[in-house]
Design a protein around this nucleic acid. Structure first.
Length: 461
RNA sequence: UCCCCAAUAGCUCAGUCGGUAGAGCAGGUGGCUGUUAACCACCUUGUCCCUGGUUCGAGUCCGGGUUGGGGAGCCA
């Protein structure tokens, strides 16, 4: 095969005149008798390359009839475009139709609803919006690894399959090789002793507990991988399979945790502004006007911090009627979080030190005896985007707390061992990758920032 | 899981008071043109989500269901 040049590179050429081979998919064709214009896109950037075809081509008739979606290989010479709309165009000398696309091609050169595009998720990456979404997603994933690598963090692959169902409150997907029609039974219950792992197992809902084990050896670590929740959640912000970033830092307290989260979040805002400009401009114009300004503000401003107790007081004094009650000891609802970040602060804000009753067992108990060292980062438009805490490193307090909330310490003996030998203050947080992408693109549905979304009743593709 | 809304051509949608279905895009034909999701003319395309009911008559009103969307809870 002839070596190709990406459209992105061709469009960035210093001058016209060179010959190129470009391969991609047709976005639109505008046909005439003496000339046809083909917008060719290969996903390397948002812009398409204008290919100019003339009847001099042996297969001009065929080429001019190729519709939106067809795959073409074009050899030609780059020329300065005489018309407005593009700097360069490729004067085709030879065009091969690699894969034709007829009128049944579901992606037309017009606006489609996101709902419809979800039903053709195998083709939607060829659209402008989803091309931009998945380029930004890829770029952000690499930026996340770079951020941690620059700071000496160890990247750890925590297990996908887990036997501990007390990691969090999330419902586990079951992993089994048992014959579901005829499972082995003992006293009417399924006997997992005969299952593949000899015990009940499921897909992970968090890599945090294993991450803590590695932090107790490598000091600063992070995980970045898929996570699964079998919750029957039908919202624009929940998926059954999503990706999560979970750093864990040893010899660190909640303040250090929040400082890391802020540096991390601002780094990623700065990253898309500096590296995804074309796609961001597209989102800013078509999806969310004000996006670039909002991201820029976050990248440049220090984040506020507010005690949970103060947040409750502010909400109580708020001159608005909330649907849910505000009382010390109750969890903050989405409407409360939005009010705090959008109205009270007008920017990102950490809420810290929550009542221990509404938070997980592993969070470090504060000296007041009623709060734990937890933090949530709230951002305008989205609400909670990061949740983290300092972990309880004191063995006696941790085991007591586990018993209080009904988690058998024996099941997590390995977790408790880190508190038994060489324990130290440590902290970490979790960032939902898709929610980050939503925040940085303005896309409002999690199903539209993950290639093939898994949600209740949906595992197509 | 709960609340609300929606479902009409391949896609995006309109459809008045209940009177028998329409536009744009896509597709076809022709024209025109260095075009810019080109343009102009003509043409083709319907299980009006399913089901039951009210009615002389239902895309339209009512009941049940399915699917999708928005919101809430759970959370990331």
């Amino acid at each position: 095969m002839k070596e190709k040049t990406r459209v992105r590179e061709v469009l960035a050429a210093p001058a016209a005149g060179a010959r190129y081979v470009v391969k991609g998919w047709v976005r639109t064709v505008r046909v005439g008798k003496e000339v046809a214009f083909i917008a060719l896109n290969d996903g390397s950037c948002l812009a398409s390359l204008q290919v100019v075809a003339t009847p001099a081509l042996a297969n001009y008739e065929e080429v001019s009839r190729s519709g939106t979606g067809a795959a073409l290989e074009v050899s030609g010479t780059l020329a300065a475009s005489p018309a407005a709309g593009q700097r360069y165009e490729l004067q085709a000398e030879e065009i091969t139709i690699t894969g034709a696309a007829d009128e049944a091609y579901p992606l037309q050169k017009k606006r489609h609803s996101f709902e419809y595009l979800r039903t053709i998720a195998h083709l939607r990456p060829r659209s402008n919006t989803f091309g931009a979404v998945f380029r930004v997603r890829s770029s952000l994933a690499q930026a996340i690894h770079r951020f941690f690598a620059e700071r000496g963090f160890l990247y750890v692959h925590t297990p996908i399959i887990t036997a501990s169902d007390c990691e969090g409150a999330g419902e586990l997907f079951r992993v089994t090789t048992l014959d579901l029609a005829h499972p082995p039974l003992v006293a009417g219950e399924v006997d997992y002793a005969g299952d593949f792992f000899g015990q009940a197992t499921g897909l992970t809902v968090s890599g945090q507990l294993e991450g803590e084990l590695f932090a107790m050896a490598f000091s600063d670590i992070y995980t970045f991988g898929p996570t699964f929740r079998a919750e029957n959640s039908n919202t624009s912000r929940h998926a059954a399979e999503f990706w999560m970033i979970e750093p864990e830092i040893a010899f660190a307290d909640l303040a250090a945790d929040a400082a890391l989260a802020e540096e991390f979040f601002r780094y990623l805002c700065r990253h898309v502004l500096d590296h995804c400009g074309e796609d961001l401009a597209f989102f800013n114009e078509h999806i969310d006007r004000g996006l670039i300004e909002r991201i820029g503000n976050v990248a440049d401003s220090a984040f506020a911090m507010m005690e949970y107790s103060e947040a409750v007081e502010r909400l109580k004094r708020a001159p608005v009627a909330f649907e849910f009650p505000v009382e010390w000891g109750l969890d903050l609802q989405a409407e409360h979080e939005r009010y705090l970040t959008e109205q009270v602060v007008g920017g990102p804000v950490f809420i810290v030190n929550y009542p221990k009753e509404i938070k997980a067992f592993y969070m470090r108990q504060n000296d007041d005896g009623r709060t734990v060292a937890a933090m949530d980062l709230l951002v305008p438009k989205v609400g909670e985007i990061i949740g983290g805490s300092q972990r309880e490193e004191r063995l006696d307090l941790l085991t007591t707390r586990m018993e209080e909330v009904g988690i058998a310490p024996a099941d997590l003996w390995w977790y408790l061992d880190t508190r038994r030998w060489g324990s130290c203050p440590h902290a970490g947080f979790g960032l939902g990758f898709e929610r980050l992408i939503m925040y940085l693109t303005g896309m409002e549905n999690i199903r539209d920032v993950i290639p093939f979304p898994r949600t209740p009743r949906h595992a197509e593709f």
